[in-house]
């Protein structure tokens, strides 16, 4: 369980986050959405301990600050938005860095399995700096997966923190990655992901946190928060979501915007 209470983060002269509460359960995918500049990435960075925040954050019942970084690396892995590397590490070497940081260090066979989970085995021997943005994103995701390969270790759930994990991917790889993330949660791990695309959020997340101006505007299952009222208010434009025929998964097409009427 991750519990964050009254999280406030001040960046420069203004409060980027203003007293946010969140409870995220293992076995679920929790998505953070919101307009540009609403504080999504800042919130994720605060939850991982990367940014200093006022308020309390507990991970699996322990205060985040009290867990040494070495131990923390075995409990959770973090995918940043984009990673540039100065040296020509190969894809395999990049994933191995993640593997060594986690509890499965030494199980080299996991490198290929992690690459397979994000549809990237064919890139294994390529130098990382030569890859396209989307390919690099998949490799970093494989690295992060290798770090917390077993979703539950010794009865303790492990966590993935993902900052826009599918933003640069083509639709095929988006679905591969979403499937991998859902499987991780289904096997008992916890996932907190900052998402940009609301349609992909609707099929990936069990719970959605909508941020606006550093506050929580709405929180709940996708069909509870992706409503015309909430989305139109948060994104400051008229948006009318539809529902898939089964009736539970909402979607939003550009054609439903005022421009297409």
């Amino acid at each position: 369980m991750i519990e964050a209470h009254d999280i406030t983060v001040r960046l420069g002269q203004r409060d980027t986050l203003k007293g946010i509460d969140l409870v995220a359960a293992p076995g679920q995918v929790t998505a953070i959405v919101g307009p540009n500049g609403s504080g999504k990435t800042t919130f994720l960075r605060a939850l991982t301990g990367e940014l200093k925040a006022h308020g309390t954050i507990t991970l699996n019942g322990r205060a985040l600050q009290s867990i040494p970084v070495g131990e923390l690396a075995g409990l959770r892995a973090v995918l940043p938005q984009a990673v540039r590397m100065a040296f020509p590490f190969t894809v395999t070497e990049v994933v191995r860095l993640g593997l060594r940081a986690g509890l499965s260090a030494g199980r080299d066979g996991l490198i290929l399995q992690a690459l397979e989970a994000v549809g990237t085995v064919d890139l294994a021997d390529r130098p990382y700096p030569d890859l396209s943005g989307g390919e690099q994103q998949r490799v970093q995701l494989a690295r992060v997966l290798a770090q917390v390969w077993e979703p539950v270790a010794d009865g303790i759930p492990r966590w993935l923190f993902l900052d826009e994990p599918v933003s640069s991917l083509d639709p095929g790889h988006q679905f591969t990655v979403i499937n991998t993330v859902r499987t991780f949660a289904a096997r008992g791990g916890g996932v907190i992901a900052v998402m940009h695309d609301l349609n992909l959020t609707a099929i990936m997340a069990d719970k959605v946190v909508v941020l606006k101006d550093g506050r929580v505007a709405a929180m709940g299952a996708p069909c509870e928060v992706m409503t015309e009222e909430i989305l139109s208010d948060v994104y400051n434009c008229p948006l009318r979501p539809g529902l898939m025929p089964a009736g539970t998964v909402p979607f939003l097409l550009p054609q439903s915007s005022p421009l297409a009427m």
Partner: peptide, 20 residues
């Protein structure tokens, strides 16, 4: 060497990988 390998990914990523 462990720390510098982590820092190759950036200081934040290094911290998330257990590097002091």
């Amino acid at each position: 060497s462990h720390g510098l390998n982590g820092i190759a990914l950036g200081e934040a990523a290094a911290m998330h990988m257990g590097v002091e």
